[in-house]
């Protein structure tokens, strides 16, 4: 298994005290799988994704990624782990504003010690159709372009796991569709495991599996075969977990 979560709990300190976000989440993701995480706002899907990326620390249970327990690693060990194995794409792109597109994409490669970081970054930007914008700063690019840079940045180190948190949430429909095509294309080319949070059932249906979260608990899981994808989503949505 690439990812294996067992009885994961997450509580965070809010303004009015501790808030329980996730309750006893257990799930496994196999190598090469694509998994869609869906659910209403506040259901904990993004938090679950953050836990999988080691960007948030679980307050209970274990999160195994490629056999490593992320809950026992310190910040720097987590950073090194991500550097070698993970790529993350955010809804708000989160490019570093003081760096050009090329520098943004090269950064994770440099951090991993790649001697050819900039050459690879350039090739990656070419692959997302931005070979001509390498010297532009994020502020000089449209939202769609910024997200393409973010995709290139996430894919450049050839991660085993690609995590995407509502990657089209800040984009219009057409741009969003193009970004999704790119994301799946990258995933197909490099064979990474893709886990994606989305509000769009259509997008979720493009994944091999879809998990629905409600109130921090796994509510339903659907295995999307090419034939079933639309039907399931269109009718009841999801089979109950354990049914």
């Amino acid at each position: 298994m690439v990812l294996s979560l067992t009885d994961v709990e997450l509580s965070l300190q809010g303004n009015a005290g501790m808030v329980d976000i996730l309750h006893g989440i257990s799930l496994e993701v196999a190598k090469g799988d694509t998994l869609g995480l869906v659910g209403p706002s506040g259901s904990g899907k993004s938090s679950l994704l953050m836990l999988m990326g080691g960007l948030e620390r679980a307050t209970g249970g274990s999160v195994l990624a490629l056999g490593n327990d992320l809950t026992t690693m310190d910040e720097d060990q987590l950073a090194r782990f991500r550097r070698s194995h993970m790529g993350v794409v955010f809804q708000s792109f989160h490019l570093i504003p003081t760096m050009t597109a090329l520098e943004n994409v090269a950064t994770p490669l440099e951090l991993a010690g790649a001697a050819d970081a900039f050459e690879r970054a350039e090739a990656e930007l070419d692959a997302v159709g931005l070979g001509h914008r390498t010297d532009h700063y994020p502020a000089q690019m449209s939202g769609g372009e910024q997200q393409r840079v973010a995709l290139a940045r996430a894919a450049a180190p050839r991660p085993d796991i690609l995590l995407a948190d509502e990657p089209t949430g800040n984009l219009d429909q057409a741009t969003g569709a193009a970004i999704m095509d790119l994301l799946f294309d990258l995933r197909d080319r490099h064979g990474a495991t893709l886990i994606m949070v989305t509000h769009s059932l259509d997008l979720a249906a493009r994944c091999d599996r879809t998990i629905r979260l409600v109130d921090g608990r796994l509510d339903a899981e659907t295995r999307n075969t090419p034939d079933l994808r639309v039907t399931d989503a269109a009718t009841t949505g999801y089979a109950k977990v354990g049914e």
Partner: peptide, 19 residues
Amino acid sequence: RGRTFEASVLKTLGATRAT
């Protein structure tokens, strides 16, 4: 605030705190 954001992105990309 800007540095906090930058540090978070860098951590996501694999930068250690020392870096």
